[in-house]
């Protein structure tokens, strides 16, 4: 599944089914770029996981809804519900580990 950029209008439907990883980010944030590269790798490796990116500058209402205090900030969803929240920059291996728990 391709990486999708969410807006406040599309967000809920994008995370409503299956396993989904939401990345709150901003273009000026260095650690967000590192997470972004990890997500680019995972996009092809795990096409059965939805990867949803939320640019906090463009979608402040979504950032406020999730009380995003710092970025990057990752939320893991399963069937529309938040299961895990991992603030801060995390390597691809750690993201894989979290996703494996939700998938299997």
């Amino acid at each position: 599944m391709a990486i999708v950029h969410a807006t406040r209008d599309t967000f809920d439907s994008l995370v409503s089914e299956g396993v989904c990883l939401v990345d709150f980010w901003a273009p000026w944030c260095g650690p967000c770029r590192m997470v972004g590269i990890a997500l680019e790798e995972l996009e092809d490796e795990l096409p059965f996981v939805s990867i949803v990116k939320v640019n906090v500058d463009e979608e402040p209402e979504l950032a406020e809804r999730f009380d995003v205090n710092g970025i990057p900030d990752l939320y893991y969803y399963k069937d529309g519900k938040v299961v895990t929240h991992c603030p801060g920059s995390v390597p691809a291996d750690e993201i894989r580990e979290q996703l494996a728990k939700l998938l299997y």
């Binding site: 490796e45 795990l46 096409p47 996703l99 494996a100 998938l103 299997y104």
Partner: peptide, 18 residues
């Protein structure tokens, strides 16, 4: 139950499943 599923996606060799 973990290995009793009608459709489970796996990236072969990733080690994520088994």
């Amino acid at each position: 139950p973990r290995f009793n599923r009608p459709a489970v996606p796996v990236n072969v060799g990733s080690g994520m499943y088994n």
